[in-house]
Each structure stands twice: as structure tokens, then as C-alpha cells.
Design a protein around this nucleic acid. Sequence first.
DNA 1: ATGTGACTAATAGTCCGTT
DNA 2: AAACGGACTATTAGTCACA
Lengths: 77, 77
Amino acid sequence: MDMRKLVGQNVKRIRQEKGLTQEQFSLVSGFSQQYISGLETGNRNPTVVTVYELAKALGVSHLDLFRTPSSRTRQDR
Amino acid sequence: MDMRKLVGQNVKRIRQEKGLTQEQFSLVSGFSQQYISGLETGNRNPTVVTVYELAKALGVSHLDLFRTPSSRTRQDR
DNA sequence: ATGTGACTAATAGTCCGTT
DNA sequence: AAACGGACTATTAGTCACA
């Protein structure tokens, strides 16, 4: 399991569900657009504190950023 | 929410449930006993990849290391 | 609107020893 | 058996210029 990609894909999916661009998410989260890009493409290995800040900015539980597709319930999708 | 302490307490609890000492867990996980000590006391901020490796060594899902007490079901406890 | 390469400062994680 | 500290190396945080 590639945790970098898992977290990155979850951030990307939830961000898009909220209708945010990387630049808009950059403003609300305080992270740079480039850093968010690196995260979403799975090129970053964030710490647990960083993931928590991302989840907070997205308005979801930190657990949501660690879920695999199979661990998400149908109503999540 | 202090993610360092949350992860640390979960590691400590599950390790103890398995009846492992920090030194034994050090051997199966490949992380040093000193590092595990720092983790469990909430003084470390591990990366998501590290948390995944810890979970694998403990034989649990990585999600189990991110759960708050209130997000754990009764049969977990 | 997103991704990449290069960069510095901070910190993740090591090994040594000690308590 | 668990925690603490110092010195050390590898990796991450976070940015900028640009594609």
C-alpha cells in the first residue's frame, strides 16, 4: 500500500468534491499550491500533523484522508 | 487534537495488548527502541509511511492507529 | 489550473550511552 | 523495561521560478 498516493488521492477527491481548485485550497489551508500539487500526485510523505491540518481545512475527519476505497461506505461515494 | 499523542497512545495500547515490550516491537518493526519510546510519549511526528509500517508490524490496519477513543467501537475495547 | 526541479531550514529517525 | 540526551544523516516542510 502506497500511503503517499492514498492520502494524495483522498485529498484530491475531497477537494474536488468541495469544488475547490488547488489555488483556492491553498488559501484556506495555508499550504502553497505547489505543495498541495506534490501531495496529490503522491510525491510527498506528509507527517500526521500535516494530514490533520489538511483534513481540518477540508472540513473532514483526518480518518477520511486515510481510507482506502474499500474502507469507504457506499454513501461516501 | 494532538496527533502525536493520539498515534502514540494507540501504538502503546496495541503493543501492550500484544504483550510486546518496546524492545521486542523494535525487532519486529525495524524501528529503534528509542524511537518507539519517543513515539509513544507523543514527542514524535511520524510520516504517514512510518505509521503504515508501524501498523503492519502490529498486525492492525493503519486506520486503527488514527482512531480516537470515541471513534473506536465497544468491541475494540 | 496543475506539475516539476531546485533550494534552505526544520525535523524524522539512527546509534551511542545513561537513568 | 522504558525514557532521556547528544551527535549524526536522511528526509520532509515549505517556497520560488517556471513549464
